[in-house]
Simulated assay, not measured.
Amino acid sequence: MSKAPATPGDSDVPVRRIDRILAYMSLGLIVLSIVCFFVVIAARPLGVTDFSGGLWPTITVLPLVGLPIAFLMIVALLIMNIVRRNRANRGR
């Protein structure tokens, strides 16, 4: 008889706190960057012509910096997950 497919709750490898932190930080940074991206796109037709004052420089630069950082955080999370699962499988 075949085994039932493994569900995420059956995992022998526990999820660490750093994994959750990296996942939520990268997700938050992606969402914030995309929101800022659409705000910059919508600001031009709405009549905002001066992007040099207030929060506009930060809002303009955040997608340029935030998305690559979030991508690197996801890559780090994947590498950590692969290493952790390989160590768990080797220990069996």
Rank of each mutant, 00 (worst) to 15 (best):
R85C: 10
L77M: 07
V61M: 11
R85S: 12
T49C: 00
V35Q: 03
G91Q: 14
L62Y: 09
M1D: 14
I79Y: 03
D10E: 11
I34V: 15
V13A: 11
L62N: 02
C36E: 05
R90S: 14
R17F: 14
G9M: 11
S2I: 02
D12E: 07
T58P: 02
G54S: 05
K3Y: 06
T58V: 15
P45I: 11
P8R: 03
R92I: 10
I59C: 07
V61D: 13
V31R: 01
R20H: 06
V15N: 00
N89H: 09
R17L: 14
R85L: 10
V40Q: 08
T7Q: 14
G91A: 11
G66E: 00
A70C: 03
R84E: 08
F38L: 05
L64G: 15
L77A: 15
L27M: 12
R84L: 04
C36R: 04
P68H: 02
M80W: 00
S26V: 03
A4E: 07
I59R: 05
R90L: 11
R16P: 03
I82F: 13
F38V: 07
G66W: 09
T58W: 13
S26K: 07
G66N: 04
K3R: 03
S26C: 03
D12H: 10
G66R: 10
S33K: 12
S11I: 01
D10R: 07
G66H: 13
D19E: 14
V40E: 08
R44A: 13
S52N: 04
L22M: 08
V39E: 12
P14F: 05
F71M: 15
A4T: 06
V13R: 15
C36P: 06
A6T: 07
V39Q: 09
D19I: 01
F51C: 02
V48W: 05
V31Q: 04
L72C: 11
V40K: 04
F51V: 03
A23L: 07
L27H: 06
A88M: 01
F51K: 05
I18V: 09
F37I: 00
V48C: 00
S52G: 10
C36V: 06
N81E: 01
R87V: 05
G28E: 06
R84A: 13
D50K: 01
T58K: 02
L62D: 02
G91K: 12
M80N: 09
L72G: 14
A76M: 06
A42Q: 06
L72W: 08
L77Q: 05
L27N: 14
T7V: 01
W56S: 08
P68C: 03
S11T: 02
I30M: 15
P57C: 04
M1K: 04
G9N: 08
I21N: 02
S52W: 09
I59M: 12
S33H: 09
A43K: 06
L67Y: 04
G66I: 05
Y24V: 15
M80V: 06
P63A: 10
R20A: 01
T7F: 11
P57L: 13
I34R: 02
I82R: 09
G53V: 12
F38I: 03
I69E: 09
P14H: 09
K3N: 08
V15I: 15
P14L: 11
A4I: 08
R16G: 09
G47T: 08
